[in-house]
Nucleic acid binder design. Structure first.
Length: 802
RNA sequence: GCCGGAGUGGCGGAAUUGGCAGACGCCCUGGACUUAAAAUCCAGUGAGGUUAAACCCUCGUACCGGUUCAAGCCCGGUUUCCGGCACCA
């Protein structure tokens, strides 16, 4: 048999389609009595340039695992969909004058074609498209539920604004001071912003991680993102004023080392007491300077401390009643903690830099460092600290300090998170309309549930308005409406949701994609959830995964989903780099198009190579000549059909070892070594010169998840029953995977001196007897005195001699 | 700066978790087949040395040191690269 991929790949794809063998059985349907396995990959954004090989890698991992699970007897759901709202589509629409709906449909068609050509075993009856009204109706519905439950709020805030895209970006979308989409500089702008109160779920998102099986680095990133810190809130009285200055600190035990206070430039108490502040003009000019800086400049570039002393306001240290000066400085952020800090220069490097620059006292309260040189942030004995003196353990001294603060009534223990609330609106056309109306009398009013979906109105001109208005604001018939509460005149919200919205719950829709009455039925959710295995890119481990866990946990609290965490297990694939070892990008011109590879070598070769190129979780550069190595492998495999012969005991043993290796390796995503094991086995077949039909059928099943088309063809030509893709996964006989004879290394003083063949499991005496007959070992021992013999059963024999 | 991960031949990468370092593949070299080339098949392929040939010797898993009969793997330190977070109090 020859590997004529052009003829066979389409043929088998059509046969699979016609027989619907990858269609998952819903509860009650035939097949649902099997154990379920819900394999999820991150659905793509259907861009105009089509898929690249990275997409293929992202899906190939669970493709192989779910194909094997099917052969293991599971009812597998491996769905696919499209996360299709978003800026690039809208920009194409603006540039080409094509409606985003049309652009999206074209791109989805292109992606679907490519996915089918790769032979992926997706259940195509469950395709989800986030831009479909029947889908985004439920995105809006969940939003309204959040609104109803107080998780949606609106606030005027300084926002990250991209002047190029004319859109407000979340902190996450504007990392490094550059727009995530067009990479131009972000500026700060005051705007009305819709927020989702994700911080309300910070603790649940953190503790929920204990229940799930994510790769350790993935878990760690989420923990860092949530950024929980434990400490205390302390209220410092302002001298001769009623108000208290409230601060947050992780080291309340350093209270005796406080020599100044710092407020963020935007702190409201400054305005309140402006009349008492004698240098208000100086402060105002400093504030104006800070407002000009972007968040990027404030946090990245300006490591040099700046600030201004507030003349006329001082604070009183609650533990020793000392009067201490207050500064404003932009190294303190309004957005974290209380927007003010107590500064302990001896034990915080930022406070230390500031104190040095402004000539403020530095009081040591923890022994162990040299505070004349730098801040000491380590542990040590407490000194100069009144009731805390003598403590030499951070934990104890903090506990004692909080106790005292609570007794004095000027503070309490508390927790802070780095995670911020989620800015949830965009001034763009191609997104889910936010289903809220603004009524002159009633304020913000939810669109009634029965009026959903609130459809995106049709229009021709999608460019955002001047000043970053949503294009929807130009459609008067859309904007002007009646208040659902009072019936009076009202205006519709014209902002749309961010792209993260639709991807926050898509996996739920897969469970019941055609349901018109609910986002998914209780019965089906109960059957399918949680996702058993979710694989995707590292870049989505924080934003998308945290957002979607938040939505899911909210639905769980409403009793609408069955288990507390959506994803039981999460892994991530590594990037495919260009042949030059650099990240693939259009500008570098090093992008490999999967279509080209399929045209030349076929989908089986592409899939096999992508999984063979290296560790699945690591980045690896593309190598066209290595692709040819996989082509050779599959051609040699195809030729086995002309090498049928008698059963060979040695090959049978190797076969069972191979089954064991491939089975274990697939389950742990070590696809590269699984393929290597099959290559080795095939090399042995070529050494022997023939293979029995039964063994070849087994090898065909092992290879099927990787290269399904050629395996179906082989299966058919050997007279296998039904589809190879539905055949039972081979089992191995443990006894046959163990050799009766072992080759073990013999060392003298740790150096290899010979190799001997021993019966498996032999005792030391037996082995030693065999070794004494080995010339090279014995000559190495010649004239030496044996001090010690170390024998590790079936592995190694080391002789220590002098 | 902090938190993760990594550093192994000419290249991509293996190594049962402390037990023969370099599986498998690529590249390259030689041979067979061919008028020739491609393809295919067979053989060789970490470096250096002794040698007629080696199945002999030495070195070798980023660097320095340690533990051990035995270290790519464990411990202490250094360094480089990748990913994430970052004036987070």
């Amino acid at each position: 048999m020859k590997h004529e991929f052009k003829a066979i790949e389409k043929k088998w794809q059509d046969k699979w389609d016609a027989a619907e063998i990858f269609k998952a059985a819903d509860p009650g349907e035939k097949g649902s009595e099997k154990p379920k396995f819900f394999a999820l990959v991150e659905f793509p954004y259907p861009s105009g340039s089509g898929m690249h090989v990275g997409h293929i890698k992202a899906y190939s991992g669970l493709e192989v695992i779910s194909r094997k699970k099917r052969m293991d007897g599971y009812n597998v759901m491996f769905p696919m969909g499209f996360d299709a709202f978003g800026l690039p589509t809208e920009n194409t629409a603006i540039k080409t004058g094509t409606h985003p709906r049309k652009v999206t449909d074209n791109n989805i068609e292109k992606f679907t074609g490519q996915l089918k050509r790769a032979g992926f075993a997706f259940d195509w009856s469950r395709v989800v498209d986030t831009t479909d009204v029947d889908y985004y109706k439920w995105t809006q519905w969940i939003f309204l539920k959040m609104f109803e439950n107080g998780l949606v709020f609106r606030d005027t805030a300084l926002v990250n604004y991209c002047p190029e895209c004319k859109v407000v970006l979340s902190n996450e979308d504007s990392q490094g001071g550059k727009c995530d989409i067009c990479h131009s500089d972000i500026v700060q702008k005051s705007k009305d912003v819709w927020y989702l109160r994700i911080t309300e779920y910070a603790d649940k998102l953190l503790t929920g991680l204990e229940e799930v099986d994510y790769l350790p680095n993935i878990k760690q990133q989420q923990v860092n993102w949530i950024g929980k810190s434990e400490g205390a809130f302390v209220n410092f009285a302002l001298a001769n004023k009623e108000d208290k200055l409230r601060i947050y600190t992780t080291r309340p035990d350093t209270l005796f080392g406080v020599t100044f206070m710092v407020m963020a430039p935007e702190h409201p108490l400054i305005d309140k007491y402006s009349a008492n502040i004698s240098n208000m003009a100086e402060i105002e000019s400093y504030r104006a300077e800070c407002a000009k800086k972007t968040e990027f400049e404030r946090t990245q570039l300006v490591k040099d401390k700046t600030g201004v002393r507030i003349e006329g306001l001082t604070a009183i240290n609650p533990v020793n009643n000392k009067e201490i000066p207050i500064y404003i400085a932009d190294y303190v952020m309004m957005g974290y903690g209380t927007g003010a800090i107590m500064a302990v220069p001896a034990h915080d490097s930022r406070d230390y830099d500031f104190a040095k620059k402004f000539g403020i006292d530095i009081i040591e309260v923890i022994k162990g460092g040299n505070i004349a040189e730098e801040a000491y942030t380590g542990d040590g004995e407490m000194v100069n600290s009144g009731f805390l003196n003598g403590f030499n353990n951070k934990k104890d001294s903090i506990r004692r300090a909080i106790e005292e603060l609570e007794k004095l009534g000027c503070g309490e223990g508390g927790v802070q998170y780095k995670m911020k609330d989620w800015a949830f609106n965009r001034q763009r056309y191609w997104g889910e309309p936010i289903p809220i109306v603004h009524c002159e009398k009633c304020g913000m009013v939810a669109v009634p549930y029965e009026e959903l979906p609130l459809k995106l109105p049709d229009m021709d001109e999608f460019a955002p308005g001047q000043g970053g208005e949503s294009p929807l604001a130009r459609i008067e018939s859309y904007v002007n409406c009646k208040c659902p509460k009072c019936g009076g005149n009202a205006k519709r919200e014209t902002d749309t949701m961010p792209q993260w919205a639709g991807s926050s719950w898509y996996f739920l829709r897969y469970c019941d994609p055609h349901n018109n009455d609910f986002f998914a039925s209780e019965e089906k959710l109960k059957y399918w959830m949680p996702v058993d295995w979710y694989n995707g890119g590292m870049e989505h481990v924080t934003r998308h995964m945290i957002y979607s866990r938040f939505w899911y946990k909210f639905l769980y609290d409403l009793g609408l989903v069955p288990v507390s965490e959506p994803y039981a297990k999460r892994t991530a694939q590594g990037l495919i780099l260009g042949p030059d070892g650099e990240k693939m990008s259009k500008s570098r011109g090093n992008v490999v198009d999967p279509n080209d590879v399929i045209d030349e070598y076929g989908a089986d070769v592409l899939r096999t190579y992508i999984l063979f190129m290296g560790d699945y979780a690591s980045a690896a550069p593309w190598s066209q000549s290595s692709v040819r190595g996989c082509k050779r492998f599959l051609e040699r495999y195809a030729a086995l059909s002309d090498m049928l012969g008698a059963r060979n005991d040695k090959l049978i043993r190797s076969l069972h070892k191979t089954i064991k290796k491939v089975t274990n390796d697939i389950d742990t995503m070590k696809f590269n070594t699984a393929i290597a094991a099959m290559m080795s086995f095939m090399n042995e077949i070529y050494d022997v010169g023939s293979i029995d039909k039964e063994s070849l059928l087994v090898l065909t099943k092992l290879l099927c998840p990787f290269a399904p088309h050629i395996c179906e063809e082989m299966w058919e030509s050997l007279g296998g029953k039904g589809f190879c893709s539905e055949a039972a996964w081979p089992e191995y006989d443990e006894a046959l995977t163990v050799d009766d004879e072992k080759e073990i290394a013999v060392q003298v003083c740790g150096k290899l001196k010979g190799v001997v063949v021993i019966p498996a499991g032999a005792e030391e005496d037996t082995v030693w007897e065999i070794i004494t007959k080995n010339e090279s070992v014995m000559s190495a021992l010649d004239g030496k005195q044996i001090i010690k013999k170390i024998y590790i059963k079936d592995k190694i024999f080391n002789i220590v001699a002098k």
